[in-house]
Amino acid sequence: MTNLTEIIGTWGASVLAWASGEIGRIYIAGGLGGALRWINSHKRRLRDGPVAIIAGSVSARFFHPIVGNILEGAFGEFARPEDAIATSAFVAGLLGMSLGKLLIAVIEGKFGAVKSGGSDEK
């Protein structure tokens, strides 16, 4: 029994250490942003909750630098850099799948014009 409690304690400490690090805070803030978006949605379904949290976490991981630059440009510099990272991760998680859809639309629009042959002028 002691061996099991040691294993659980070790894994628990590892998870807490990861969550208190910078990347853990980014994933957690993004997941909370995704959860908030799901809670505020009109058609709330239980199966959509975990998807929103995962999408928020992944979006926060990859989009928080972009969102951070936009927030800094709009509101000015944050007093503490770690607050800027957490806030931008939360907003990126809140935007979640919408931010991904926007990025895909921009990429498809950019490459769609190249595929279609550009302008109709001869």
Rank of each mutant, 00 (worst) to 15 (best):
K115M: 13
G73V: 01
F78Y: 13
R45C: 03
A113D: 13
D83H: 07
D48I: 06
R37A: 15
F63H: 00
A19D: 03
V15I: 15
S59C: 09
S14Q: 09
R61I: 13
G33K: 04
R45H: 06
T2A: 11
Y27D: 00
Y27P: 00
L99M: 10
I104W: 04
A79P: 00
S57Q: 05
I26C: 08
I70A: 11
P65C: 08
R25Y: 12
F75P: 03
L32H: 07
R47V: 13
L36T: 14
M97K: 07
L102A: 15
I28S: 08
M1W: 04
V51Q: 12
R44T: 05
A89Y: 04
K43S: 12
I39N: 04
I104H: 02
G30Y: 10
D48P: 02
G30D: 10
R61C: 13
W11S: 10
H42E: 09
V15R: 00
M97L: 12
V58R: 01
A52T: 03
G96Q: 12
I53P: 01
G76N: 06
L103D: 02
A84P: 00
A105F: 12
I104C: 01
A74D: 01
T2Y: 06
I26D: 04
K43T: 15
I54W: 09
L99S: 08
R37K: 14
G109A: 10
A29L: 12
I53L: 12
A52G: 05
F90A: 15
G100A: 08
K110V: 15
G49N: 01
L4S: 07
E121G: 04
G117E: 08
W38Q: 06
V58H: 05
P81A: 13
I54A: 15
A52W: 06
T87I: 13
H64W: 08
E6N: 14
L46T: 08
G49H: 01
L32Y: 07
P50L: 15
I8F: 15
A35P: 02
G31E: 07
F62K: 01
S88L: 03
A13C: 01
G49E: 02
N69I: 08
V91G: 06
L16W: 08
A105I: 10
I53K: 02
P50M: 13
I70L: 11
R45M: 11
K115F: 12
I70W: 04
W18Q: 03
T2S: 08
V58N: 03
S57E: 05
W11C: 08
V15Q: 05
H42G: 09
I70H: 01
L16C: 02
I104V: 11
K122N: 10
R47C: 03
S119V: 13
A35I: 09
L16A: 14
R37Y: 14
P65S: 05
M1T: 05
G56F: 05
A13S: 14
W38Y: 06
G96S: 14
G93L: 09
L46R: 01
S14V: 03
G93N: 04
F111N: 10
L103F: 15
R37G: 11
I7W: 10
T10L: 13
T2F: 05
G49P: 00
